[in-house]
């Protein structure tokens, strides 16, 4: 049967890229952790790869608008993220899971996601259904009324993903979401990622190259706060040769691109 389509759903988007950064610089403490990054991202699942200290978390924080860019331009959904005008509306359309996120241990999963939905200024009437839907999507429906402190690490992280997707965001930022998930949960999580990436711009930062290979439409590799590579997982795998360290083609491609960028940095 035909479904009725609302005007908001068919409205044209007034921007070319969900995320567009040019010469972006973001400070983390005194260090310039993101240093002159150019990036354009549309809908799909983008895997953000890079060694420790590459600036992944700082970049994601800037995309979540909790850090103000020091220089350069950053546009999210066509809105300048550095400015104050429109930030509130922008944040309603962003979902953000920080790397080490704290939570109130006395809350149940449902209360936690409800509280976050309230903070995201969702209409009160929509909150109960949206919370139930988000909790079901991450597979925590049977634990929805358990307190957060009784959950295992992997479940806490899934509760974190539930709060990030509760407002049905256009931009979804997940910082290390697969930490603490067991192999079976990681597989389920990849399926969830793929379904989320169908309609929105999902950015997943991770250390695990195989997560990217399986679930991402696009790979963004950064090192030293700069963009090293952007392309499909297949192109990343194609960049490596059997001489490069790594067990899989993806890992060899990853180390090939990183060593190339390090040599470049060292020579000049």
């Amino acid at each position: 049967m035909t479904r009725a389509v609302g005007a908001a759903e068919v409205a044209p988007t007034p921007y070319a890229w969900e995320i567009r950064a040019e010469g972006l610089k973001v400070r983390a403490g005194r260090r310039m952790a993101v240093d002159g990054l150019d990036l354009s991202l549309g809908t799909g699942v983008h895997g953000l790869l890079g060694p420790n200290g590459a600036g992944k978390t700082t970049l994601i924080r800037a995309l979540a608008t909790v850090l103000r860019p020091a220089d350069g331009t950053l546009e999210l959904l066509g809105v300048p993220a550095g400015g104050q005008a429109g930030r509130r509306e922008l944040r309603r359309r962003i979902g953000y899971l920080p790397q080490d996120f704290g939570y109130y241990k006395r809350f149940t999963v449902r209360e936690f996601v409800e509280y976050m939905a309230w903070l995201k200024e969702m209409p009160a009437k929509e909150i109960p259904a949206a919370v139930q839907h988000a909790v079901e999507r991450v597979g925590l429906a049977d634990r929805a009324d358990h307190r957060m402190r009784t959950l295992s690490g992997g479940m806490v992280r899934r509760a974190g993903v539930a709060q990030a997707i509760v407002n049905d965001p256009r931009i979804l930022l997940l910082d290390e979401p697969t930490v603490g998930l067991d192999p079976a949960q990681r597989l389920r999580f990849r399926e969830l990622l793929q379904s989320l990436g169908a309609g929105s711009c999902v950015i997943v930062s991770t250390h695990l190259v195989e997560d990217v290979a399986a679930a991402c439409t696009d790979v963004v590799l950064i090192a030293g706060g700069e963009l090293v590579f952007q392309g499909t997982p297949a192109r990343l795998a194609g960049a490596g040769t059997p001489d490069h360290p790594g067990d899989t083609p993806m890992e060899r491609g990853y180390s090939a691109l990183l060593s190339r960028s390090e040599q470049g940095g060292g020579a000049w």
């Binding site: 944040r91 920080p98 080490d100 704290g102 976050m116 903070l119």
Partner: peptide
């Protein structure tokens, strides 16, 4: 003291 500070900071109601 407030463990959920980073989650709260990124929401529209923060401020």
């Amino acid at each position: 003291l407030d463990p959920a500070y980073e989650l709260v900071a990124g929401t529209p109601r923060a401020g």
